[in-house]
């Protein structure tokens, strides 16, 4: 749910990074946080366990500049990937404008990716969204791993609506901004249509 404030001329969009445990959701927004201009970024809030596993969510507000005289601000959230945190994941999807699915390219994680997409579809539905129509981008992360499955195989298994698909190595920043940009494009184009 985009929040458009005509008084302060601001648009706020909520983008959620989704995916199986340890696929690199937090790494994506950490990289954005480290690279962003200090004036444009807010604080990175991480509700994590002592071992740095996301417990509830990570949150990063980003000021992006202006479109048509409106200040655009993205609120980036990650969900906890571990299967048993499902209740938290559902809460975080509430009112989101777009979803980035971060897939773990490693062959051993193929099934975890598929399960996580199915879980995303269910949780979106419970929040009143449709996975087939919401702004959505697929990121194939960890492309540098020797055990990474071929892109074609991942595409066949994980891509279901001709969504933008971006190869990434999030810990080195490869593909991170492209992913965010592809999502922003869909959200803003969606605003245009509505």
């Amino acid at each position: 749910m985009t929040f458009i404030n005509y008084a302060s001329r601001e648009i706020n969009c909520k983008i959620v990074y989704y995916g199986p445990g340890l696929c690199g959701k937090t790494t994506n927004i950490q990289w954005i946080f480290e690279q962003a201009n200090p004036e444009k970024k807010g604080k990175l809030v991480s509700l994590a366990t002592e071992t740095d596993r996301t417990l509830f969510f990570d949150f990063l507000p980003l000021d992006m500049g202006t479109v048509k005289g409106f200040k655009v601000r993205f609120h980036l959230y990650t969900v906890p990937g571990q299967v048993f945190y499902d209740a938290s994941r559902k809460l975080i999807l509430r009112g989101c404008d777009g979803v980035i699915f971060v897939a773990d390219s490693q062959a051993a994680r193929l099934e975890a990716n598929i399960e996580s997409i199915a879980n995303l579809a269910t949780n979106l539905k419970e929040n009143g969204f449709d996975i087939r129509t919401i702004p959505y981008v697929l990121q194939l992360n960890k492309r540098d791993m020797p055990t990474a499955a071929p892109v074609q195989e991942l595409e066949q298994l994980l891509r279901f609506r001709n969504e933008p698909m971006i190869e990434a190595v999030a810990n080195r920043g490869v593909g991170v901004i492209d992913t965010l940009k592809a999502t922003a494009r869909q959200i803003l184009m969606d605003l245009q249509r509505s």
């Binding site: 479109v67 901004i177 803003l188 605003l191 245009q192």
Partner: peptide, 17 residues
């Protein structure tokens, strides 16, 4: 009238510098 009826690709590129 929505101000977002004519968002272009250039507008989005500009957001990302």
């Amino acid at each position: 009238e929505s101000p977002f009826t004519e968002i272009t690709d250039e507008d989005i590129d500009r957001l990302f510098g």
